[in-house]
Amino acid sequence: MSERNEHVTEQRRQILEMLAENKITADEAEQLIAAVEGERQASPREAAPQAGPRRKYLRVLASDDSAGAGTGHVNIRVPLQLLRAGVRLTSFIPPQAIAKINAELGKSGVPIDLSELKPAQIEELIDHLDELVVDVVDETSSVRVFCE
């Protein structure tokens, strides 16, 4: 039994003793026990450790050694907050512009309706980027996308 559980059990015993000694009424005892139980249920969530440090940046690392002229590499670090702000900005695209973009995307073989993309959905997607890791490696080049 954990230390906290022992503490709660002790508190309950004290409340029952007070009830037995007629220091408190049955209703008061019930309320006190409910309060103690509520505290016990709330505590594990408060005390639960975080799933990990909150990721702040999206990193894209790419390198290519195949070109004869020399090594090429890309190192991009974008704050996730910037992605969120950018997503919010898309909600200010005028409907006429969205219609034109949709038409051009359709012509290019990408039939995506941007008006169906809601900022809340994209924000949810960004929230889950935390766990994203893309790691592509071959003999001469590599691409790595992750959050840190």
Binding site: G70, L82, A85, G86, R88, P94
Partner: peptide, 28 residues
């Protein structure tokens, strides 16, 4: 026909989120 205040707020948030951005591209 879009909200000027909303756009200003959006641009402000975008600018405030910029610190920390780093783009480095090298090719030969």
């Amino acid at each position: 026909g879009i909200s000027p205040l909303g756009t200003l707020r959006g641009v402000g948030r975008f600018l405030c989120a910029l610190p920390g951005t780093r783009i480095e591209i090298a090719d030969g």
